[in-house]
């Protein structure tokens, strides 16, 4: 099948087939960045939500504003900030590390909200029971509340994992050779063809997103049935 219009633009299957392995191998970088970023966000989000729930007012207030600020500013600028500003203070890391840090920080603020929803959904009686049984607050939170809060928020976290996966292409702007960088800067500018590489990247993302979203929906239904 040829996708041709009056201008003669043609989809070249041979070329698409030829570059696919290169794109798939670059996809590994994308996946690695996403998984590392998400691990950071899982911890960062927990830290932020603990700040937010703190009884010390300055701590909870700074937690609130940190979350608002990170969520209210573009990931791209946060990425540039890490990439260009930190080295001026002697903190030089590779582009990949910078990218993972920025992704992790950005999504920490989203994860904090996810945790918050999960913790708020734990019945108040659980806290009261813990108090009645003389549990220390720290133990109540970590051994009683958190284990109940986490399973219901797994689907929401999954959605943010997919969102982060899609956002990880921003790392191409700071020269991480992930899939979009490979498509545009390595293949596209070398061969003067953007149609196949960029379309393939879109299709790859679409496939991964559709499969993940279907999986998350099944998980959601499964969790609902268990309740």
């Amino acid at each position: 099948m040829n996708l041709s219009l009056a201008t003669g633009a043609q989809w070249d299957w041979a070329f698409a087939w030829e570059i696919l392995p290169q794109l798939l191998s670059a996809m590994r970088v994308t996946v690695t960045a996403t998984l590392l970023g998400m691990s950071l966000a899982v911890f960062g989000g927990l830290l932020l939500v603990m700040m937010r729930r703190s009884h010390i007012k300055t701590l909870s207030r700074s937690g609130y504003w940190t979350i608002e600020f990170i969520r209210g500013t573009p990931l791209l600028i946060q990425l540039y900030f890490f990439y260009y500003v930190l080295p001026e203070y002697g903190l030089q890391q590779s582009a990949m590390v910078t990218g993972v840090l920025a992704l992790g920080l950005h999504y920490s603020s989203y994860m904090a909200e996810v945790y918050r929803a999960g913790i708020d959904a734990v019945p108040k009686g659980q806290w009261e029971a813990a108090t009645a049984l003389n549990f220390p607050p720290k133990r109540t939170f970590f051994t009683l509340i958190l284990p109940q809060a986490i399973p219901p928020i797994v689907p929401a976290s999954g959605n943010y994992l997919v969102a982060m996966f899609k956002d990880s292409v921003l790392l191409s702007t700071i020269t991480v050779t992930e899939v979009l960088y490979t498509a545009r800067d390595d293949i596209g500018s070398d061969r003067f063809r953007y149609l196949e590489p960029l379309t393939l990247v879109g299709v790859l993302f679409l496939i991964v997103s559709l499969i993940s979203v279907a999986g998350i929906r099944r998980l959601e239904r499964h969790l609902e049935k268990k309740r």
Partner: peptide
């Protein structure tokens, strides 16, 4: 449009 990145969409519109 939800399944692909905004940046990929932008490049597609601009380069393809």
């Amino acid at each position: 449009f939800r399944g692909t990145s905004a940046l990929v969409q932008l490049f597609w519109f601009f380069f393809v």
